[in-house]
């Protein structure tokens, strides 16, 4: 465990909590893509099945349980409790265009052709693109609430910090996971445009709105 990995995990946790609190405090999930949140719940579910088969550390187990619980809570708030505030008309990204190719790819390119490993690979590939419905929604409405941008910032920062973690681990531990690294690079690149807007607009106190 290095500092980049730890801050990456904490940044991921911060993103998840920010989103939950935003929905809970405002009693509304306006501007949030339920589809992205469903995909994240699927990501955590398929990745953390190893909770049943292997124990790494108390930290590892508790973080996994927290991520899974929070992602299900978020989905519950969007599709059940605050369903009336869910902006389904703008959440029109076709998720099958992500899930089907990602599913196929995880069968073709993986470290080991075993059920758990294929599901882990699926979750890594899916996570890298799971934010697309959310970004698509923002590009469709042309704006995002500031709190939503903080959520996206921490979510993007998490994968960027993981990239530094992987460089660190490569040099100091000889650890290298091509699948995670390639997917992590793709995932981070998807946030670059958003990072630019976040720094040039949101951090200067302006609302994130896109030119018409």
């Amino acid at each position: 465990m290095n500092i980049f990995r730890l801050t990456g995990d904490l940044s991921h946790l911060a993103a998840i909590i920010i989103l939950l609190l935003k929905i809970w405090k405002t009693r509304s999930c306006a501007g949030i893509s339920g589809k992205s949140q469903l995909l994240f719940a699927l990501v955590f579910t398929t990745r953390y099945l190893d909770l049943f088969t292997s124990f790494i550390s108390l930290y590892n187990t508790s973080m996994k349980l927290i991520y899974v619980a929070c992602s299900y809570a978020t989905v519950y708030l969007i599709y059940m409790k605050f369903k009336a505030t869910y902006d389904g008309n703008h959440d029109t990204f076709r998720v099958e265009f992500l899930v089907v190719p990602v599913g196929g790819l995880s069968f073709l390119v993986n470290h080991d052709f075993s059920p758990l490993e294929i599901l882990w690979t699926f979750s890594i590939y899916l996570e890298s693109v799971a934010i697309l419905p959310q970004l698509f929604m923002i590009s469709k409405t042309g704006e995002a609430e500031t709190i939503t941008t903080h959520y996206l910032f921490f979510l993007g920062l998490y994968r960027a910090l993981y990239l530094i973690n992987w460089i660190w681990r490569y040099y100091f531990e000889g650890f290298f996971d091509l699948i995670a690294v390639v997917a992590g690079v793709v995932q981070t690149i998807l946030y670059c445009d958003f990072f630019y807007l976040y720094v040039t607009k949101v951090l200067k106190g302006k609302k994130l709105s896109l030119p018409a």
């Binding site: 995990d9 758990l116 995670a180």
Partner: peptide
């Protein structure tokens, strides 16, 4: 070392 199950990252 190449990563494989069990994965130690989150």
């Amino acid at each position: 070392i190449v990563a494989k199950t069990p994965h130690d990252e989150l």
